[in-house]
């Protein structure tokens, strides 16, 4: 049986619903020795800012129970260097290339979005309004409904590309933010970003991370992510991309069943750089076994 794996999300057509999460896949090239990147539904590159950023001082990561905390601090080459040095190579890859963008002011977001309008080979923008790692950064946008709506509208007003807005879980009611962002014009939502956490070295009585707090990722957050995706799917009518602790096809399928149109694989790439290809293979195997010919027939089929 020939399986139909393609999904359409907010004007973007993907050959399958498996994407790589921003910040866990570099600029794609880092992984080219470990899998055929052409197999991926989409590659979401490391978050881009207007100017290059050095990020936080080390230590930046610490392992936790079934997960990890990171406080990389959005280190990146900047949007112009991305276009000049990274994008030409990525144009040779037959997967959707999605640029994740962030800023410290709405003007920054707007400028980055404008610069990417002219960049050939970028299929969509993912707007990070949720990164909890930078002291003056994204957290204020993503946790405040008015600001979240404002930044979404500002990017939508200037961008020619489909706009995905990535939501933070560090809020009281994620459906409230999701509705505001939808109303502000977002084409797609992706969730969740990392959950803010902390870890302490009891010998030295210091935080394990130089930044004190960091973003928790990995299987530890998957149940929380799944619950939030399910809630948001029921609260909005635009497509939702499920992210958070996906380690294998079983995890990815859970997100699709609750209604996510696609998934992003993040931390799992660190443990096994070829994991996304395995996930696609195992997803196809599941569909064959269940007699599901089109992945879209599986999405949102949760029975309660």
């Amino acid at each position: 049986m020939k399986l139909k794996m393609g999904v359409d999300i907010g004007g973007l057509t993907l050959k399958n619903p498996v994407m790589t999460a921003s910040g866990t896949f570099g600029y794609g090239e880092e992984y080219s020795d470990y899998l055929d990147l052409n197999r991926l539904g989409a590659i979401i590159v490391k978050g881009l800012s207007l100017e290059p950023r050095d990020g936080n001082q080390p230590p930046r990561i610490i392992e936790t129970a079934s997960g990890m905390l990171n406080a990389v601090g959005l280190q990146n080459v900047g949007v112009r260097a991305f276009i000049d040095d990274k994008l030409p190579w990525l144009r040779g890859i037959d997967s959707a290339i999605i640029a994740n963008i962030f800023g410290e002011t709405i003007e920054d977001y707007v400028k980055v979005a404008e610069i990417l309008n002219d960049a050939e080979g970028v299929a969509a923008l993912e707007v990070n309004i949720s990164c909890p790692n930078v002291k003056r950064g994204g957290i204020t946008f993503g946790s405040d409904p008015a600001l979240a709506g404002e930044v979404t509208r500002a990017v939508k007003d200037v961008s020619h590309l489909p706009v995905i807005v990535k939501l933070t879980p560090n809020v009281t009611d994620i459906t409230q933010i999701a509705r505001v962002v939808e109303a502000a014009g977002a084409d797609v939502l992706s969730l969740i970003n990392t959950i803010t956490g902390m870890s302490v070295d009891i010998e030295k009585r210091v935080p394990h991370l130089e930044n004190v707090t960091g973003g928790l990722s990995g299987p530890a957050i998957k149940p929380v992510a799944l619950r939030m995706v399910w809630e948001v799917v029921n609260a909005v009518s635009i497509p939702v991309i499920g992210v958070g602790g996906i380690m294998n096809a079983r995890d990815a399928l859970e997100f699709l069943i609750v209604g996510a149109k696609a998934v992003q694989v993040g931390t799992a790439n660190f443990l096994n750089p070829g994991v996304t290809a395995d996930i696609i293979d195992d997803m196809e195997k599941y569909m064959s076994e269940k007699g599901i010919g089109d992945i879209n027939d599986l999405i949102g089929t949760l029975k309660i």
């Binding site: 880092e30 001082q57 080390p58 990561i61 990389v72 790439n269 660190f270």
Partner: peptide, 17 residues
């Protein structure tokens, strides 16, 4: 030596000054 997550240059966890 530094703590690492990926070992292949993607996670940016193991930086040194």
């Amino acid at each position: 030596e530094e703590r690492m997550a990926c070992g292949i240059g993607a996670c940016l966890g193991c930086v040194v000054k």
